[in-house]
Design a protein around this nucleic acid. Structure first.
Lengths: 204, 204
DNA sequence: GCCGTCGTATGACATCTGTCATCCGGCACA
DNA sequence: TGTGCCGGATGACAGATGTCATACGACGGC
């Protein structure tokens, strides 16, 4: 029989993280050797523990699971990457795959899929929800330019044009232009809806 | 030794739910006898399984954990209620307690607190994070009227005044008045920020 | 070398949003 | 019985927002 699979678990909510660890602890062939709560300590922990698989939540302080995945993929290419998230946003799937993820799971999938995914990626397979994959492909790529995304992100908290202009070192007119084109690209009625749509698709 | 504590687990994300079940399964004196993924089936499940404690996530389809708590409290007052949530919004704590909750936990508290809280509520204690309790008291009550809340909630998706007026059977001017007073009460700069602030405080 | 796109900017315009004063009817509390 | 507050409404006004045409330099592809 093969040696146990060493897993790194990155998830910011302690209760969920430890619960997932308990879940994986029930599997004979899997051992959680490290747990972290922030995206920016993932690499160090992976180095310190010589892990086989990293299980990464996307929503984390410090760095997102996707950013952590990109870093791990570059620095420790032997480590397999399973990205786990609450939101099945097609844009997330796309960027996770671009960052080198081997599996992409949503948290409302059955728990059994987690251990299964870990074994599969270790065997060289890729694990993706087919529905989500179809959605990601159907939706097309992010139509927003870098600047448009930046302005939308800054506008999320309800800042006015003047504040956005000051924060981004742009003229007010330019801010309005970017927001206007973003609103049109997203078929929104105003900036608030544009933000919502972009968030939903994982384009921010 | 006392008989095992029968727990009902209500949480919409399967992976998290089953992971929490695995976590609680490690405790000798606790048994998860029922799992549900929607708020509106909690009562029926509690009736069917004669549970001692209900563990309720707030964010669920069908009905929120808080609504489910109120219903359980009214119909099966013997069942102890532990409310669990991602967001430590003081307004959530307030309404959970008003709905008869015995404990209020946030998901980024250490996992050990979960089993501990279950035992404590069964012993008649109440379990609340002191920091959160202080925040809830310091913040005061929800300053918004019913209508203001309703309009804010409807405005969340980026609807225009005209659409809000149509949806709520109000005149456009009235919609603007409500939004204006809400914006002032929340010390926001515009509706978007007002929505954000109200959400953060758990006032929507 | 030309064309398209991006980033940046301006000015003009129409519309939307936020504020304020004011009004009415109903209802609760003193 | 009067004094408020809430729900609902109107009208007027200032300022914010969204749209459009237009412009220029940089850069990439053909």
């Amino acid at each position: 029989m093969s040696p146990t699979i060493k897993v790194l678990l990155a998830e910011d909510q302690s209760m969920v993280r430890e619960a997932l660890a308990a879940l994986l602890g029930l599997e004979d062939d899997i051992e959680v050797v490290a747990q972290v709560a922030r995206g920016d300590v993932v690499l160090a922990a992976a180095r310190a523990h010589d892990v086989d698989v990293a299980l990464l939540d996307i929503e984390m302080p410090g760095a997102t699971g996707i950013e952590a995945a990109a870093l791990l993929h570059a620095e420790l290419p032997a480590v397999k990457l399973v990205v786990l998230t609450t939101f099945g946003r097609p844009g997330y799937l796309r960027s996770a795959m671009e960052s080198g993820a081997d599996a992409f799971l949503v948290k409302d999938a059955p728990a059994a899929q987690l251990a299964e995914a870990i074994r599969k990626v270790l065997a060289g397979e890729r694990v993706i929800d087919p529905t989500l994959a179809a959605a990601a492909l159907a939706e097309g790529a992010n139509p927003l330019t870098d600047r448009e995304r930046e302005v939308l992100r800054a506008a999320e908290d309800g800042s006015t044009n003047a504040e956005l202009a000051a924060a981004l070192h742009l003229s007010q007119g330019t801010v309005r232009n970017y927001l206007s084109t973003a609103i049109q690209k997203l078929a929104a009625r105003n900036r608030a809806e544009a933000v919502r749509i972009a968030r939903e698709k994982g384009w921010l």
